[in-house]
Design a protein around this nucleic acid. Structure first.
Lengths: 187, 187, 187, 187
DNA sequence: AATGAATGAGTGTTCATTCAT
DNA sequence: TATGAATGAACACTCATTCAT
């Protein structure tokens, strides 16, 4: 098994899936993009579904790595900022992956992987909020609702960035944090 | 042309599309659900795509109706609250539709309709923010980013509500507004 | 569902399967022979396997009908002769079917149907022999072995007839019976 | 060319072909069984068909060796018995081979080898019968039909033995001869 | 002599769409 | 207006075979 060929296939699949989505992506597209024969594809992946799963898993793993639990030894806002910056950077480095992950497709099985991940993120945010409320840093609120809101905001903002060339990660992260912490209200 | 038959097909399609998404939905599913013959479907809709488009258009229309431009004669926050409540109500009355609209599928053509709509909403929010900044009500910020954030938050919160039975629209709307205006920061 | 089309497909499949066997038979061959479109095939049969099964079942049923248990009110040899004549006639009327049934293919599942049937026939012969021995009509022997021998003889003889045009069923049946009852030994 | 490797491949192929038949047997199965690389297979055999042919040829050769023409210097029945015993022994020593040879597959080309052989055997039997009739040992009969019957009986009986562990070759051979010469009729 | 990665023709199956009744 | 049998383009996947190392 050649790691090289596998890599080519993964890269090709990322591109095709992000351009066309799962259902419109064809094996032909992927192998043409990879410059590889039909049979070769099935040497490395059992099915179209499998390579898709594989890609999703990789991104989720990478994303998980970039999101770190906030500890109380340092300024929590700094840590949130760092998390956001790391996630934004990944999304911008690997725009194709980002597109794939942020697409909601319908097949429930296929998206279990990302959905699970997003649920995890949501839980993490909620727990952080709850902890913040106890500590008096965060104002009391329905953390269930707010956590989803924060995640949704992040996702949509990232989608918006994917087509831009000149993104200042720091600035955007700062903007997100300000919006999240103080809202849009003046004063 | 029987309005009745057309209606049955639309209702069936809403259900099927929301359950299975566009690609996994089959004409067979829709006509079985509607209790109508295969050929009958094509008397009313040119293609699977067309009925999907039709449904999307209807929702978008309905949504557009529920979102009203803020005027300065009344408390803008009240007007935002009313907009949010109306949208939430629609989503909860027609959960199937909501699911369809909030699913991002990949075929760029198919989702032009909803995407366009969401872009409109985004623009509306941005303009409102810009106006608010001029008036000194809203703090200066990158309205491009913040507008997307607000929309994303709304979308994700709605998705989160779709599986719940006991939703208090007022409370959730209030929570959203508080989050949007003042963020999560205490004090 | 048109009985006509289904019939055309069955007839075509019989021909193709008997000419090429299960594995070399292609759906294309069958639908070309039937003068029907690809999709039509799958309207009537779930798979290539299913139509094959269907055909086998039909023959086995027909064969079962033609083999009747010997009763003691009449000359048993006459009854055996009639059984053999009926089976030979079927084989000669439906040579394609005969070829299919008498082909031993390897897929164990696919041939369970005919194998079961042949086991039944074998059991029937053995039981008849056992009864005959008790009655003193049949000489004592290892009925297990002899029953298989009789069935094998029948099968092979039928195979030999399938390519001939001018078969006198009566004569052949008589020959089989004489061979089975008295062997080849002179006197 | 290593005789060892070739041998391993032949043995593996015998096993796989007898278990799965020609069409369901895959090169992968054979090389896995033989513990040999893919390319190695094609060093020794031009194709899947060739190794199958090779195996068939070997068996047919071996079988031919075991069947000897009856000469009139000794009791012909003894010679027939010896022939049968030798064939039975081979079948029981090499059950896999026996299964392969006795399976009728459909591809006409592939089975030409065994079919030819069986035709030869048939001819041999018929000639022996004809000779016997002239000598007055065998009763007059349609030797064409009877010869096929004898061969079919033998084949089917052998198939029946392949799954048994405790076969007494002498006894079975005796049973076959008695059945062939005197039939099942008492007295 | 042996390897195993790569190949690509071949085939069963699906499903949106058409059209004669 | 409604039916449902028929269509056929499209596609995922298989597996015998090749060839560079």
């Amino acid at each position: 098994m050649s790691v090289h060929t596998r890599g080519r296939l993964i890269e090709a699949a990322k591109k095709i899936f992000s351009e066309k989505g799962f259902y419109n992506a064809q094996i032909s597209h992927i192998i043409d993009e990879a410059g590889v024969a039909r049979g070769t594809f099935y040497l490395y992946f059992k099915s179209k579904e499998e390579i898709f799963r594989e890609i999703l898993k990789e991104v989720v793993e990478e994303l998980r790595d970039r999101i770190r639990v906030i500890d109380l030894s340092r300024d929590p806002i700094d840590q949130v900022r760092e998390n956001i910056e790391r996630v934004l950077s990944l999304a911008l480095e690997e725009r194709e992956l980002a597109r794939i992950v942020l697409q909601r497709n319908c097949d429930p099985e296929l998206f279990a992987i990302t959905n699970e991940f997003f649920e995890e993120v949501c839980d993490l945010i909620r727990e952080s909020l709850d902890k913040g409320i106890t500590l008096g840093i965060i104002r009391p609120c329905d953390t269930e609702v707010v956590a989803r809101g924060i995640m949704g905001a992040l996702k949509e903002i990232i989608i918006g960035l994917l087509d831009r060339e000149d993104v200042d990660v720091r600035k955007v992260a700062e903007e997100i944090i300000r919006f999240g912490t103080r809202g849009v209200w003046s004063e």
